[in-house]
Amino acid sequence: MVSIDLLKQVSIFSGLSDDQLRRISDICRQEIHDEGEAIVREKEPSNDLYIIQEGTVEVALGKPTAPGPTPILHLGKGQIFGEMALLDRGLRSATVNAKADNTALYAISRDDFVKLCEQDTRIGYIVMRNVAADLSFKLRHYNLAWR
């Protein structure tokens, strides 16, 4: 089970009560990955949302003109990835690798999350609003990177 204090440091859970955070904690499972290990791969089916507990991951995209995935972003503690799977059920849009040994993540399956949201629509509203804000933040990051 994930500590409530850790979940309070993740922006997509901002605004949830301790009781609501406990319900989120109940559906989290921990994963540990070693350096270079692929956590998700571009174009593969998707199911889970990931929260970075400790460490850094590298997000990389395949390009037709490059032999391997090209790094486009690093994500550190408290960040999430795989959120698009929660929203659109599409294939993974990028490959995500652990940057160091003992990279610790929490994973939430889409099915478990949707079930929880159906049981408590207030959790669903708050988290989905925050996920939208997180996607907006990432878009703004890319806009600023292109200046």
Binding site: S11, I72, L73, H74, L75, G76, G78, F137
Partner: peptide
């Protein structure tokens, strides 16, 4: 908690988002 988007100009680093 500060969620920060880092961009490195003229570098090989792809940028980072971290808390």
């Amino acid at each position: 908690i500060y969620q920060v988007s880092y961009v490195v100009i003229d570098g090989g680093h792809p940028g980072t988002i971290m808390n």
